[in-house]
Design a protein around this nucleic acid. Structure first.
Lengths: 128, 128
DNA sequence: AACAACATTTACGTAAAAGTCAATTACTGG
DNA sequence: CCAGTAATTGACTTTTACGTAAATGTTGTT
């Protein structure tokens, strides 16, 4: 468990470019510390990158991912802010539940499509 | 159950623009029939649009959605093509399973984030 | 016939999310 | 100390997925 990772180490670990990591920093998604001008990535940054890429695979925009990673941070101290945050979290969860429904439906249709193919193969007398 | 729907009927039904529907046609995702130059959308087109939008919500690109909707069509007649199709379907399913893992992890993290907020509220003596 | 409402094609514009390239600057091993 | 590798910033480019506008066609009232 090292303390710091270089930018190229992260690009290899995650299969993304330096440009991408710098872009995420510009967009305020990550905040690697600096030694001089050089970025040093901590464990927390690596974890954030993992979360960002997860969000991307789920089709969230960078802006939406920005909202999500805010929710992972320390809860705010003020009651109004806390309630707002809870509301936002609930919205994102609804969003994710919709995606889950979409996902299950798509999987079901693909199952069906594969079955059709297998049946067709059987009709053609191919041993599966 | 009508036979044909106009383009604006579909835009209202799905909350998308005519431009979007024409774009999907240009990309070969849908093939509405024509009366003169006017597009007429059938049930099957409506179903396809629903599938396309599902794919979009899951973060698939138009090209990927194109591949997916091909899989929903009649299985090909040739053995080699069938086997290839089955392989492709399996790939997409793996893709979807990854998305499902991403989704569950994200949901779990959001659950945790919400709990933290609720706890914090309790600490502040707010009746939930 | 005129008007609205809806449709079409063509073409250019744009925002998001990087890719690519150039010119510097920083580090590191020999 | 210096070559070579790694990192930085900045600018420009590209791709995707449409938006938008212009000019024109079609249909259905009134």
């Amino acid at each position: 468990m090292r303390e710091y990772y270089s930018i190229t180490e992260l690009t290899r670990e995650f299969g993304i470019s330096t440009r991408t990591l710098r872009f995420y920093e510009d967009e305020g998604l990550i905040h690697p510390v600096r030694r001089g001008r050089t970025r040093l990535f901590r464990q927390s940054d690596r974890h954030l990158v993992r979360q960002i890429l997860r969000g991307k695979r789920l089709g969230f925009s960078i802006a939406e991912i920005g909202e999500i990673v805010q929710m992972y941070r320390e809860p705010p101290g003020e009651v109004g802010q806390l309630k707002l945050m809870i509301k936002r979290i609930e919205e994102k969860r609804e969003d994710l539940r919709q995606k889950r429904r979409d996902l299950e439906e798509t999987l079901a249709e693909l199952d069906h499509a594969e079955e059709s193919c297998v049946e067709r193969l059987a009709e053609l007398g191919v041993n599966t």
